[in-house]
Amino acid sequence: MAGVESKLRYRDARNGDVDTLAELVVRLKRLNEEFDSMLTVRDDIKVVSRSYISSAVKDKNCIVIVAEYKGKVVGLLKADLRERRFSQPMREGRIIEFYIMPEYRKHGSGTEMLHHAIEKMKHMGVQMISAEFPSQNKISVQFYAKQGFRPITNIHSKLL
């Protein structure tokens, strides 16, 4: 049976990955949608995801990392590099997109990928790391708590 025989490999995203990465972004946004109706995806999600990830791959102010299994892209982590205006430390890396295909989850792949990204950002001078995800996503809450993250800002929303 198919399964994870060797660990995933992690590398920087390339232009050639854009189509697959756009699909992963769509999957992530649809997953987020499950947690809250205010995260309902827009009808043109595929188009916007593609243009979003295609510019992110070239953008110096963010990093995009892919997870590969036997040459196939199965995961994505995108983080923005930000300057904090009022607080210190000032250089923050904020994880905005983080998705691994279902089959390749567990086996520590999420932790591995996160650490890969953190190492990379450290080298780039990042001093603190944050992650954005839906409040109701208990799986993410637990994952980041285990990695030593704690909530520092709440964003509360309501429809008008």
């Binding site: 999957r27 649809r30 997953l31 499950e34 295909m101 279902p102 089959e103």
Partner: peptide
């Protein structure tokens, strides 16, 4: 495991 509804099933 590549199906679009996998995350929905997970939850």
């Amino acid at each position: 495991p590549d199906r679009d509804d996998m995350d929905e099933l997970m939850l």
